[in-house]
Amino acid sequence: MSHNENTQGLLSELRQQTGQNAARCYQCGKCSAGCPMAQEMSLRPHDIMRAIASGHEQRLFEGDSIWLCLTCETCTARCPNECDPARVIDFLREKALAKNPKKAPRPIRAFHKAFIRQIRTHGRVYEMGLIADYKLSGGALFQDVSAAPGMMARGKLALMPSTIDGIADVRRIVDACLAKSHGDHGEEA
């Protein structure tokens, strides 16, 4: 593995686009310790920071790790040295999609699209609609159904959608973003 290639490339690109300095990460691991998805990821948040700082670019885009991130931002909230791993991962996803729009694993892509469609339709997430949309496009129809009664009972699943005021503005924003991303990576929402 050569250490000379490209480090500065990705590091400085990240810095230019997001203001994030991956070299700040001193590998304490607190981000990964708090990450709810760490057990599922082959590269955990601190590994991702390290890989950028040391130029292991390929590893970053190899597995599912950057797509598994929920953007809950626990990592960012916990970081003692003011890094923002969530933002860094977002940057990596943007970069991955720019290279190859089909890069994200299919179910994850399906979920993201369903999510955006919910926002565009209601201005907020209507869970039932999101689930239905995601399951239809993702295929796995009956996965996790057993969780439904419990969620209903706790009032986490509303039966009817409610649409926010100013939905027109939200649609304009979403459409503008989609148009831009069409331009950038020609992807359908």
Binding site: M1, H3, N4, R50, A51, S54, H56
Partner: peptide, 9 residues
Amino acid sequence: LSGEPIEMD
């Protein structure tokens, strides 16, 4: 830290 051997110039 990344568990990788390094060869560099």
